[in-house]
Design a protein around this nucleic acid. Structure first.
Lengths: 115, 115
DNA sequence: TGCATATTTCAAGAATTCATGTACTGACAA
DNA sequence: TTGTCAGTACATGAATTCTTGAAATATGCA
């Protein structure tokens, strides 16, 4: 991931509504949510939601598809992985004192899961 | 880390200059860099740099201290760790399909380093 | 076809961000 | 004390972001 793409992704998450939307979609998983459902649970008007979803989409953090009359949105797993990998590898240069906490935690969990 | 703080941190990194500054400071380590040196290597005017540093500082991503006539800046390790942990644990709920790639890579590296 | 529902597009205005120039503060040295 | 350098604070204006309401588009159903 290039720095320019990372800036776009950070900008996409740098808004209360959009971050809330993203977190909600993470919970929802691959089946995602229809635009109307998202708008209702976040508490914003339809045009406003559309604006924010476009922003998240441009950043590669969500994907969308039509489902009859509805348009559904879900997190773009690959996009999110790229952003996290940019942060830990590109940006923080894998320095454990910077990104080690999460890794150490995950490491512990991973080992437990492995067994 | 609360969602509001995460939004601030994302906003701080959502700018070409600020992300470049942050990455430069990561390379520089705890000794950091003087404001003037940062301004020169990024290629922006002093007031503009001051504006961006304040933004990074408010987000808890850098710290600063006076060193004679200079003001030095370095990455705030704790702040960065908190942001990464928010992303992997709070936001992505530790789901390996979302935040697992980086972890897997780190795991591999960790194992190599361990031996 | 005609109508209702779901969503996006568009236009307008408010609010925020950002760059630039100027003025100010703090530290050092003669 | 005076001058100089490093950096910040402030004011201004341009550009961008965001919200809102109205209009347009797409789908499904009677």
């Amino acid at each position: 991931m290039e720095q320019t793409d990372a800036v776009k992704a950070f900008a996409a998450l740098a808004h209360e509504h959009r971050l809330a939307i993203f977190r909600r979609l993470v919970v929802e998983g691959p089946s995602g949510l229809a635009a109307g459902e998202i708008a209702k649970c976040i508490g914003i008007a339809a045009p406003s939601l559309s604006f924010h979803m476009k922003e998240l989409d441009r950043a590669g953090l969500v994907r969308s598809w039509r489902d009859g009359r509805f348009v559904r949105y879900s997190v773009d797993i690959e996009g999110m992985r790229k952003l996290l990998s940019f942060l830990t590898e590109e940006c923080c240069q894998r320095r454990p004192e910077l990104c080690g906490a999460g890794v150490a935690t995950a490491l512990r969990r991973q080992k437990v899961t492995d067994q």
